[in-house]
Simulated scan of single mutants.
Amino acid sequence: MASDPALPHWLSRVGVFDLETTGVDVEHDRIVTAHVGVLDAKGREIASRDWLADPGIEIPDGATAVHGITTAHARAHGRPASEVVADVTGALRSLLSQGVPVVAYNASYDFSLLAHEAHRHGLDALIDPSPIIDPLVIDKAYDRFRRGKRTLEVVAAHYAVPLEGAHDASADAVAAGRIAQAMARQFELPTSLSALHTQQICWARAQAASLTDYFISIGRLDPEEALDGSWPVRSAR
């Protein structure tokens, strides 16, 4: 990816983070694989670490079909979940403490599940992690009326970011970071990381409220129900 002087200086070095898990319930599902890395201004990964965990529960066939990891493989080759959760949390905390933004696609999923895993294993969870960059939230805010799905694969293609090996934590994390950089070249984002982080909190809340209204209108939610728009970590239930 060619260097572009329009890229904000605070996106010249970004952390990237992704989890592959046993399912989509942030409170009860578990980490299977994780990736934390760092990209430079050209989108090249200059540091990275991967983890395979034994989640301590059966990995459903549906989850295996997505990321390719079976229960037998995780038990044979994965590290204890508590060690993986501690390592991933520590790696992210280190980046954030240095002021390095961490990009995560649909960040409220990954950070919420990681926080629940930390609590499950008696570890110190990341509290209000910041600065976080979520390309899904940003894409919905700047291109609100674009039709079609907003999966990572679709959005990567929209911003001309290659994504090979989707649903591999490493590939997904790197693609998300490159999408964030592509967005920064295309859109007039807030002028600082703190401003962008705060704006995403507002955008995520508004997006959840809008989706709640839609789901109620089609009968997918009851009128008294509401989607949690907390970001980047969902509220405790």
Rank of each mutant, 00 (worst) to 15 (best):
residue 23 G to R: 06
residue 4 D to R: 11
residue 235 S to E: 07
residue 117 E to N: 05
residue 80 P to N: 07
residue 18 D to S: 11
residue 134 D to K: 09
residue 101 P to H: 06
residue 159 Y to R: 12
residue 21 T to C: 08
residue 195 A to S: 15
residue 137 V to L: 02
residue 151 T to A: 07
residue 200 Q to A: 02
residue 56 G to S: 10
residue 182 A to R: 15
residue 68 G to Q: 10
residue 98 Q to R: 15
residue 37 G to Y: 04
residue 18 D to K: 05
residue 25 D to C: 05
residue 121 H to R: 04
residue 32 V to T: 06
residue 47 A to F: 02
residue 180 A to Q: 11
residue 201 I to L: 04
residue 204 A to R: 11
residue 71 T to F: 01
residue 200 Q to P: 01
residue 184 A to C: 10
residue 113 L to R: 03
residue 202 C to E: 11
residue 116 H to P: 01
residue 150 R to Y: 11
residue 61 D to R: 12
residue 63 A to L: 06
residue 227 L to S: 05
residue 227 L to F: 14
residue 184 A to Y: 05
residue 223 P to I: 13
residue 210 S to M: 11
residue 236 A to C: 10
residue 110 D to S: 01
residue 221 L to E: 05
residue 158 H to F: 07
residue 227 L to I: 15
residue 165 G to A: 13
residue 210 S to H: 10
residue 154 V to C: 01
residue 6 A to D: 13
residue 122 G to P: 11
residue 237 R to G: 13
residue 5 P to F: 03
residue 83 E to K: 06
residue 192 S to W: 06
residue 154 V to S: 10
residue 34 A to P: 03
residue 144 R to M: 07
residue 139 D to C: 07
residue 38 V to S: 06
residue 201 I to V: 15
residue 86 A to K: 04
residue 64 T to M: 12
residue 237 R to L: 11
residue 151 T to Q: 09
residue 17 F to P: 04
residue 157 A to Y: 07
residue 93 R to L: 00
residue 133 I to H: 09
residue 12 S to M: 13
residue 58 E to C: 06
residue 100 V to F: 09
residue 165 G to K: 13
residue 186 Q to P: 01
residue 122 G to M: 07
residue 216 I to K: 15
residue 135 P to N: 13
residue 136 L to P: 00
residue 29 D to P: 13
residue 208 A to F: 05
residue 137 V to I: 14
residue 131 P to S: 06
residue 192 S to M: 06
residue 213 D to A: 13
residue 53 A to S: 15
residue 170 S to A: 14
residue 84 V to M: 03
residue 70 T to Y: 04
residue 203 W to Y: 14
residue 216 I to M: 08
residue 128 D to S: 08
residue 80 P to C: 07
residue 16 V to M: 08
residue 137 V to W: 00
residue 186 Q to M: 14
residue 169 A to S: 14
residue 180 A to S: 15
residue 136 L to I: 00
residue 194 S to N: 14
residue 226 A to S: 12
residue 8 P to Q: 04
residue 112 S to W: 00
residue 99 G to F: 13
residue 25 D to Y: 05
residue 44 R to D: 15
residue 189 L to M: 10
residue 120 R to Q: 09
residue 148 G to F: 03
residue 121 H to Q: 08
residue 26 V to F: 00
residue 160 A to Q: 13
residue 138 I to G: 01
residue 130 S to K: 12
residue 214 Y to L: 09
residue 118 A to V: 01
residue 123 L to D: 03
residue 39 L to F: 07
residue 186 Q to Y: 12
residue 53 A to G: 08
residue 24 V to N: 08
residue 49 R to E: 00
residue 102 V to R: 00
residue 81 A to G: 02
residue 19 L to N: 05
residue 67 H to K: 03
residue 87 D to Y: 02
residue 64 T to W: 01
residue 141 A to M: 03
residue 24 V to R: 06
residue 13 R to W: 02
residue 212 T to A: 04
residue 229 G to W: 04
residue 151 T to M: 05
residue 32 V to H: 04
residue 156 A to D: 11
residue 217 S to F: 04
residue 52 L to S: 08
residue 51 W to H: 03
residue 59 I to Y: 02
residue 14 V to T: 15
